[in-house]
């Protein structure tokens, strides 16, 4: 039997959740025995090369590219798992949800004290750039999600136990200390 195939991505996230995946330490050796990776920043494969069994999503949707990637994941992955607060509730990027887009962009590119070299006062709007959404959307509001792993980041043991349980086809055994929202 071939190994289950895993894909991962970071949408509007900080890659902290991917760091937490790596935080399984030496079990990463068991992981490569257990699964194969397809599209993922871990192996730098940019596009899906086959159908996957498990998709891990970090980060919420803050622009059109995030939505596209998320839908692509839903299309190619049998089981989709949200990893971390940002994917589940927007997380810190969602702090902008009650601030008008115009204000956000002006703060970022024109008015913030850290803006030193923008004499033409340009706000990037090239056609090549993804369009920023009116607010940051939790992933489950865009596509159907199968499982949720909360945490900022989710504890490595939570990710590990969930993955292994899913592959072994059993219910994960989740201790109290594994489920945290921070």
């Amino acid at each position: 039997m071939s190994k289950p195939v895993v894909a991962t991505t970071s949408l509007a996230g900080c890659f902290g959740c991917h760091m937490s995946i790596l935080d399984i330490d030496e079990r990463i050796l068991d992981l490569i025995e257990l699964v194969e990776f397809d599209k993922s920043p871990i192996n730098d494969i940019k596009t899906f090369s086959r159908e996957c069994d498990i998709g891990l999503i970090e980060g919420g949707c803050c622009n059109s590219e995030n939505v596209e990637v998320l839908r692509d994941f839903r299309k190619h992955c049998k089981t989709l798992i949200l990893v971390g607060e940002c994917a589940i509730m927007g997380g810190l990027p969602a702090l902008r949800n009650n601030i008008p887009i115009k204000e956000c962009l002006e703060e970022a590119y024109l008015n913030s004290p850290s803006v030193t070299e923008n004499e033409e006062r340009i706000i990037p709007n090239d056609d090549e750039l993804p369009i920023i959404l009116n607010k940051v959307y939790p992933c489950q509001e865009i596509v159907k999600i199968d499982y949720y792993l909360p945490g900022c980041p989710p504890r490595a043991d939570l990710i590990w136990e969930t993955l292994v349980a899913l592959i072994e086809g059993r219910k994960p055994k989740l201790d109290y200390e594994l489920i945290k929202y921070d």
């Binding site: 949200l82 509730m89 949800n97 009650n98 509001e141 109290y176 489920i179 929202y181």
Partner: peptide
């Protein structure tokens, strides 16, 4: 929420302006 082992709410987030 921890005690009740809630992984994610079933309802959509409201993001009220407060």
């Amino acid at each position: 929420i921890y005690r009740h082992q809630i992984m994610a709410p079933r309802f959509p987030f409201q993001f009220p302006d407060r």
